[in-house]
Nucleic acid binder design. Structure first.
Lengths: 215, 215
DNA sequence: GATTTATTGTTCAAAAAATCACAATAACTA
DNA sequence: TAGTTATTGTGATTTTTTGAACAATAAATC
């Protein structure tokens, strides 16, 4: 019942609420959130209902309390620390990207096997030898990791990360990973996402797709 | 019926077939593809059926002809050219990433408003002033573009891209874009993808989620 | 060449997800 | 304060997606 799509919607509600909040709004209706996120108002209410979130009949939802509840559900009350394995193109871009910090996600360190990438300048996110992953993860109580290595190395890196105690994976390598121990894997395949757009452009014109968000 | 999830599956079948092909395999069964992609064999056969792809009873599918058919459906027979708008972290990483070229997707150019980013070294992907987008798109018959600018600029950039003739968008900015003209928009929100993993790690432990691919 | 076996293609059933619809009711209005 | 109105929360319904099952049948075997 609580699947990825549902959580993604909650996260989007949270983002929309954050914007409304900083614009000075105090309350919000399911309609408003539906518009902001691109779903129906029923969907919004049902999602809330599923997590026991109540509003006021005719009064809508108090933004502040709604945000608190969503933040609690989504684990956004404390900063979450993650590690990246792979300091190449994608890993480097993620380290520089400001979007994570803004949402309370702290990239604690990056790990690589290439000594040329190692770096421990004050202020920068440290890039460390992969051997140090296990100790680092233990020491900082980290459960989430990003795989940003070439596909050929990804499975091996996953095994290593799981052995180090990582439980949740965001995987950018374009292969299906096999996991022995219990964990959660979320795959992001950038090429696939672009190829999907290409398909709908090539094949979608005759069926007059107008202005469709496909994901 | 032919939705994003279905196309993503087809693209994954294609990738799996490519690997099998380069390993010297000649034919494949729905079971094999199901394993490789993480779906049921029924799903594989149903997907193929939907696109009129037939195999041989008891003989499975001829990899070569299957690949040809999938490539045709997915528009992979000719190289697809795309542009990136935004030469920041994400844009730069995408330009350096080898995965696109490997799959027949050519990043033709990148556009930015910051002159410090402009670059036309031989061999590199050119980074050009945004004003040149329209002419470039016309000249190279480009229909697909990537938005890799800060969220604050994304809507304006989208409007500009649509005006330039772009029809398909891969959007990395974490906001919901509004489009006047007909187009296809695929959103990739990296922070959201990571936050999703965080949710399942925080809330998933008690429900004994074992080794789940959530996307 | 007959028999067995494994795999497809498709129909039917099940499960999941989204949407509709409306009673309940709190907030407004006069 | 009584009446009106807008919005929630949820049960019912529809739509979409997935999975199971099995007849049809081509390949393999003997």
């Amino acid at each position: 019942m609580v699947n990825k799509k549902c959580i993604i919607r909650l996260l989007r509600y949270k983002n929309a609420l954050h914007r409304l909040n900083s614009l000075g709004f105090v309350r919000v209706f399911s309609d408003n959130l539906a518009d902001a996120v691109g779903v129906t108002a029923s969907q919004v209410r049902k999602d809330f209902s599923l997590f026991g979130i109540c509003g006021n009949k005719r009064g809508g939802y108090q933004i502040e309390t709604l945000l608190e509840k969503l933040n609690h559900i989504l684990g956004k009350n404390e900063q979450q620390k993650v590690v990246i394995v792979g300091g190449g193109n994608i890993g480097a871009a993620l380290m520089k990207y400001k979007g994570f910090e803004k949402e309370g996600v702290k990239i604690a360190a990056c790990f690589d096997i290439d000594p040329a990438k190692y770096n421990h300048r004050e202020g920068d996110i440290p890039v460390l030898p992969l051997e140090q992953l296990k100790d680092f993860v233990r020491q900082h109580h980290i459960r989430i990791g990003v795989i940003a290595v070439p596909d050929i190395a990804a499975q091996q890196v996953l095994d290593f990360m799981l052995a180090a105690g990582i439980k949740g994976i965001l995987n950018f390598a374009p292969i299906r990973l096999r996991a022995a121990s219990d964990c959660v894997i979320n795959n992001v395949n950038l090429v696939l996402e672009l190829e999907t757009v290409i398909y709908f452009i090539i094949n979608g014109t005759e069926s007059s797709i107008n202005n469709r968000h496909i994901g």
